[in-house]
Amino acid sequence: QDMLTVRVNNRQLINRLMSQFLQLDIVGSTMMMKLLDRKNKISADEFKRQAIEIFGSQAAEGLPKLAKMIGMKSVDDLPSELADDESVRQLREVMQLLRQKGIENAVFDVTLMRGLDYYTGMVFELFDNSPENNRALFGGGRYDGLVGLFGVEPIATVGVGMGATTMQQFLEVHDLLPKLPSRTDVYIIPVSKESLTGADNLARKLRDEGVRAELDITGRKIDKQIKAALKKRIPFAVFVGEDEIASGAYTVRNLVESDEQKVGAERIVTIVKDRRYDGDDDAAFEL
């Protein structure tokens, strides 16, 4: 849990704070919510400038209230006149339920807006605590009216959306990506564009015999193809040229032991399976 922070708020509470605490009308409230949603993406000076524009002639009274609101770090810091509001009750209940479930990294965040307008209740986001990726990984919330806009019976709904890129960065930053070994047996290297068809035929033949074969179709230089096989930790490279296609004998290089031999397709199958198994049909070979 120390890797993540669950930030929680309630859109009904946000509406109350905008109208009752900041004294903004509907247009001003919408603009302020969008500004708060961007708060961590713009400078403090730019945030203040835009807030002054939203408050207009009431900026002298509004800015101190906005600063006070942003400083509310717990539900207990909310204005006393909102203590009995249904949205506050829901927040307290959710936070209590999370603690009962052993989730200790959930916090109330009064600035959490979830920019989309269709949210009607609880909203949440999960943030990566790492300074290298301090951003929302995914989030969502309650929306009661959205489904009804599509001509069906309105139902209360909770949804969540995930950022694929941010999740990948989270896994990378915290070293959580599994280091899976390659299960490919042979890397087939066409030595020329003309030998690609023959190399493809060999790949299909080997696959039919249960050999896991990868065919390089990039047309890049041979040394780069070999480097690709080494990077993927594939144990064998098979070189396919016009001579090999004509004779049916292919150069097979053991990339682990750095030796070569020239053999037919049937022998490649045997070499691979001898390497892959050690008396147990389910034991995958190791480099």
Rank of each mutant, 00 (worst) to 15 (best):
I42G: 13
S43T: 15
A44L: 10
D45C: 04
F47T: 01
R49N: 14
Q50Y: 12
Q50P: 00
A51R: 08
I52L: 08
I52M: 10
I52H: 11
E53C: 12
I54C: 08
F55D: 12
F55W: 00
G56H: 01
G56Y: 02
S57Q: 12
Q58N: 13
A59Y: 00
P64E: 04
M69N: 13
I70A: 10
G71I: 03
M72Y: 08
S74K: 09
V75W: 11
P79V: 00
S80C: 03
E81P: 02
E81M: 12
A83P: 02
A83T: 11
D84V: 02
D85A: 11
E86W: 04
E86V: 13
S87P: 11
S87V: 04
S87W: 06
V88K: 06
V88G: 12
R89P: 01
E93C: 13
V94R: 05
Q96F: 14
Q96K: 13
L97D: 11
L98I: 02
L98R: 01
L98K: 01
R99C: 04
R99P: 00
Q100I: 09
K101M: 13
K101A: 14
I103E: 01
E104T: 14
N105Y: 05
N105P: 06
F108Y: 14
D109C: 08
D109M: 07
V110R: 09
T111F: 09
L112A: 01
R114Y: 06
L116I: 08
D117L: 00
D117A: 09
Y118L: 09
Y118E: 08
T120E: 06
T120M: 07
G121A: 09
M122Y: 10
V123K: 01
E125N: 04
L126I: 15
D128T: 02
D128K: 10
N129M: 05
N129D: 08
S130R: 01
S130W: 00
P131C: 03
E132V: 08
E132D: 12
E132S: 14
N133G: 10
N133Y: 02
N133H: 07
N134S: 14
N134A: 14
R135K: 11
R135F: 01
R135C: 00
R135G: 00
R135D: 07
